[in-house]
């Protein structure tokens, strides 16, 4: 393994940990708002780490650009979608867990 592979492995494992804890949070947190919080952490940071792990191993700058674009789009979609879900939940009068 060349040095960049080690970096990639560390980043991918870190990303996996974020996804794992995000999933645990989604299953175990008490209400929709805290679950959204857990989910977006996994999506944003976990996917970011995995994308970085793949970027380290990418063959060309074109692939790097595409990977980063995917991350940006997911950030964008995730933030907007969770905002919409939270807003709808508030409208329907779902109370926040205290």
């Amino acid at each position: 393994m060349i040095p960049s592979d080690y970096v990639a492995v560390v980043l991918l494992i870190l990303g996996g940990i974020f996804f794992f804890s995000g999933t645990v949070g989604l299953l175990r947190f008490p209400d929709v708002y805290t679950r959204l919080h857990a989910l977006t952490k996994a999506d944003n940071v976990g996917l970011g780490l995995i994308v970085l792990g793949l970027v380290v191993q990418a063959e060309s700058w074109f692939v790097v650009g595409k990977l980063l674009l995917i991350w940006l789009l997911v950030l964008f979609a995730g933030a907007s979608a969770s905002h919409l879900i939270a807003k709808r939940a508030l409208h329907r009068g779902i109370r926040m867990w205290k």
Partner: peptide
């Protein structure tokens, strides 16, 4: 529909 969905669709449709 709210400004978030509006902005979201405006920015994303060209993409």
């Amino acid at each position: 529909t709210g400004s978030v969905l509006d902005t979201f669709s405006r920015l994303l449709v060209p993409v």
